[in-house]
Computed example of a mutant assay.
Amino acid sequence: MIRMLLVEDETRLVETLVKGLRTADIDATAVRTGREGLRLALEGDFDIMVLDIGLPDQEGFTVLRKLRAAGSDLPVIILTARTSAEDTVRGLERGADDYMAKPFSFDVLVARIRLRARAHPEDDPTAAQLIRVGRCELDPIERTLACDGLDVPLSPREFQLAHLLMSRGGEVVPRADALQDVWGSAARDNVLDVYIRYLRAHLGQDAIETVRGVGYRFVG
C-alpha cells in the first residue's frame, strides 16, 4: 500500500480525498499546516506527499524549499487552485515532481500518485538491482551514482533523470518520455536541456549522447 502525506487545509476536500484514496489502496495521512507537513515529511515513513500551496501558516512553496534543502527526495505532487504558468514553473523548479490544478479528476490524481510514489524493493525485486552503464554505476535504493569509483553528488531531479537514462540500457530516451517521467505534464520543454547540461557537467560531455530530433542516450 502506498503511504501518502496530504498537506491540505480544506476540511471537506481532505475528508473526501482520504476516504477515496483508501479505496484505491493508498493510505493517506492528512495535516493542515505547512509546519506539521514538513515535520512529518522529514520524520515519517511516506512514499509521496501531495501538497497544497495556500496553507494557513506558510506557502507550500516554502515547505517544498525547506524539504529539498534538508536533503529529502520524497516525491511531491503540488495540488492547488493556483494555476498560472509562473506558479507552475516556480513549483517545478523548487523540486516538485508534478503539478495539478484544482478542480481535478480523482482518477488522474490516483494515477499520478502511483506513477510518482517512491517504489519499494520488496514490491519490485528488479528495483534493487545496481544499474551499470559504461564507467558509471547507479544504486536505485541508496540513490547514489558513482563513476570511475568516485561518488557523483546529484540533486534529486538530476538523480531521477540519470536513473531514467541509465535504466534504458543504452537505448535512446525520447524527449517526451523524459519530460513526462521526470517533470510531469506541466514541464517546459527546455528544462530537459538544462538538466542534461547539469549531468554533463558532473559526468563529462561525452557521457550523454544527443540523438538529434529524438532524445538522449546514456553512454557513460
Rank of each mutant, 00 (worst) to 15 (best):
D52R: 12
V14D: 01
I208M: 07
R35N: 02
L203V: 08
R168H: 15
D45T: 09
R217G: 08
K66T: 00
D87R: 05
A30V: 07
G134F: 07
D98T: 04
A162M: 08
D139F: 08
A24M: 08
G34Y: 04
P153D: 09
A117C: 11
V31I: 06
A96C: 01
G20H: 10
L55C: 08
I141M: 13
V7M: 01
L165P: 05
I53E: 02
D25N: 14
A85G: 06
A69I: 00
V7K: 02
I26L: 02
P75T: 09
V182I: 15
Y195I: 01
I48K: 06
H163S: 08
H202F: 11
C136H: 10
D189L: 13
A178C: 14
A85F: 10
F106C: 03
A41E: 07
A187G: 10
E10R: 11
L6D: 01
T144S: 15
A187L: 03
R68S: 10
L13E: 03
P174L: 06
L203E: 11
D148W: 10
G54K: 13
D177E: 15
V214Q: 14
V110C: 01
L38R: 06
R175E: 14
I26W: 04
M4N: 02
L150M: 11
V18P: 03
D139V: 04
V63Y: 06
L51K: 05
Y99Q: 00
D57P: 14
R35W: 00
L154R: 06
R68H: 12
V191F: 06
R12D: 06
L145H: 06
R200V: 03
L67G: 07
T33K: 10
D124Q: 11
L13M: 13
F106T: 01
G44K: 13
T33H: 10
V133G: 04
A101S: 15
Q129K: 10
A117W: 07
L109R: 03
Q160M: 12
M4G: 07
V182N: 09
V152D: 08
R94K: 11
T88L: 05
E209A: 14
P125H: 11
L51Q: 03
S105W: 08
A162E: 04
A187R: 09
A186C: 13
E59Q: 08
L13H: 05
L109M: 04
L67P: 05
H120K: 15
D97V: 05
L79H: 06
D177A: 14
L17A: 12
D151K: 12
Y195S: 07
G204W: 02
A187W: 06
T62Q: 13
V50G: 06
T11D: 10
I48D: 05
D97E: 12
A111M: 09
R143C: 10
E59Y: 07
R32P: 00
V31R: 08
R39N: 12
I113S: 08
C136Q: 12
M49H: 02
L164H: 09
T33R: 13
Q205M: 02
A178T: 07
R132S: 13
G169P: 10
L150R: 15
M100D: 00
D57M: 13
